[in-house]
């Protein structure tokens, strides 16, 4: 499990949820973080949120009954997953840059 790549959507959702956020907030935040490159569609986001909740990588914050305003936040397990992913991504970039000799 630890050496499996996260999808771009999941990676950016987890990053967004370092602070509490609701669904639409995540969409806007991801678009902003990626300078407009990653535009999460609502159906994809909804599916990802439910899977992440099941995995325990995020939790939904109590308080809001209205699902429109429901906020989510990353868990320690989610953070751990992100850290592992960043190590993996770093390896990809270091190997790629070294072999292709891409200048920084």
């Amino acid at each position: 499990m630890s050496n499996t790549a996260l999808t771009e959507a999941v990676y950016y959702i987890l990053l967004s949820l370092m602070q509490p956020m609701h669904g639409y907030g995540i969409m806007q935040n991801v678009e902003q973080l990626s300078n407009g490159r990653v535009k999460l569609a609502a159906g994809t986001l909804y599916g990802a949120i439910n899977t992440l909740l099941e995995k325990g990588w995020i939790i939904s914050l109590p308080g809001e009954k209205d699902s429109r305003k429901k906020e989510y936040q990353i868990t320690d397990q989610g953070k751990q997953t992100l850290e592992t992913e960043i190590i993996r991504l770093r390896e990809l970039i270091e190997n790629g840059s070294r072999i292709l000799e891409v200048k920084k």
Partner: peptide, 16 residues
């Protein structure tokens, strides 16, 4: 209000 698609990656499109 921006683009409108319900799925934005291959995995979710295939699942759907």
């Amino acid at each position: 209000d921006g683009e409108f698609e319900l799925f934005s990656d291959n995995a979710s499109r295939i699942k759907y």
